[in-house]
Amino acid sequence: MRDLWLIGIGTGSPDHVTREGLRALSEAGLILVPRKGPGKDDLAELRLRIIEEAGATARVVPFDMPVRDESLPYQTRVARWHDEIAARWQDAIAGAEVDGPVALLVWGDPGLYDSTLRIAERLSPAPRLRVVPGVTALQALTSAHAIPFNTVNGAVTVTTGRRLRDHGWPEGAESVVVMLDGECSFQGLAPEGLHLWWGAYLGMENQLLDAGPLAEAGPRVVEARAKARAAHGWIMDTYLLRREAP
């Protein structure tokens, strides 16, 4: 593998894929598609649908995603998980004839709270990387709610649920976007003066949205998220919190 293309595909709608992304798919020689286990087949199916609509003729090679060892410390288990994913990429490619660049379809954008670039660094020999940007969860969320990402001259902090739980509201922050939060970490915040905008399955047919003062919207989101995860077997969501003007 001399060339590895990481193609951002947005947050669930095939319409999120840019013309550059479609062209890259049509020019790829081999496309890797992750399988994430029972109950998550629709994630692979969406990727296959995008590949078909792009008119790609490349060979599609699936690979099974490993499971993180939750018994290990966080940084250690993530590092080992990335090592194993890289090994599975190489095994999948080694078992196939490659005629042209290898492509991976990346949910959202390869450069925003996504580990694909860090996993690619583990490959040996190192391939030439090309990154095709995609629609981010930040864009999909604010567009779905028809709100601006920032206030006038205001800064936005983008963080994770883990950091929100461990460190609370970021010092000096006005607007906070939280990604990768499986525990609804906003529950640990004092809700006074905070407004919440939440979205799950953004861009997909089963998109869910809610918004309102945190004290009111927060409990609704916790309930809706639990029901959706039970129904679909997986969930991808994000939310924006903003301090209301005095």
Rank of each mutant, 00 (worst) to 15 (best):
A92W: 07
N153K: 10
Y74L: 14
T159Y: 07
F149I: 15
G134R: 05
F63W: 14
L72W: 07
G134E: 03
G168L: 10
P170C: 10
E97T: 13
T159D: 10
T136V: 08
R80C: 01
V78C: 03
G182Y: 09
F149V: 15
Y74D: 02
A58C: 08
P73N: 06
L129E: 01
R122L: 14
R77N: 12
W107Q: 06
P125S: 06
H195F: 13
P110L: 00
A96E: 15
R77V: 00
H145K: 09
S71W: 01
E84S: 03
A144M: 09
F149R: 11
R165V: 04
V131Y: 03
G188Y: 11
V61W: 02
F186H: 09
M179Q: 10
I85C: 03
S143K: 02
L105C: 10
C184S: 15
G154E: 15
V176K: 08
V78S: 05
I93P: 04
M65H: 12
E97N: 02
T57A: 13
T116N: 10
A173H: 08
D69S: 06
D64M: 03
I85T: 04
V67F: 11
V98T: 13
E70K: 14
E70Q: 11
A144I: 06
I147S: 03
V78T: 10
L141W: 08
L72V: 06
E121R: 15
Q75L: 13
R77E: 12
E174A: 10
G95W: 07
M65S: 14
Q90Y: 00
E70R: 15
L105Q: 00
P191H: 04
T159C: 12
V135Y: 05
T136H: 03
L112N: 01
G100V: 03
A126L: 12
A86L: 06
A126H: 13
G108R: 03
P101T: 10
A87H: 12
V135T: 12
A92S: 14
R59F: 00
R165H: 11
L180Q: 11
L129A: 07
E171C: 02
G172S: 09
T136R: 04
W89H: 12
V176L: 11
Q187N: 01
R165S: 14
W169V: 06
R128F: 01
H82F: 12
A87M: 07
L196N: 11
M65C: 10
L123K: 07
G108H: 05
V78R: 11
V156Y: 02
E174H: 13
L164Y: 07
R68K: 14
E174M: 05
L180C: 07
T151L: 15
A86H: 08
G134H: 06
A144N: 08
E84C: 00
D91A: 15
V132M: 06
F63Q: 05
D99H: 12
A56S: 15
D166K: 08
R128C: 02
V131Q: 03
V178W: 07
L138E: 04
P170N: 08
A86Q: 05
E183A: 14
E97K: 08
S124D: 14
W107A: 00
V67A: 13
P170G: 09
L180D: 08
E97A: 13
F186A: 07
L129I: 14
G134Y: 09
D83K: 04
R162E: 13
N153R: 14
D109F: 05
E183M: 05
A144S: 14
A94I: 00
T76I: 12
G193E: 05
G111M: 03
R130E: 13
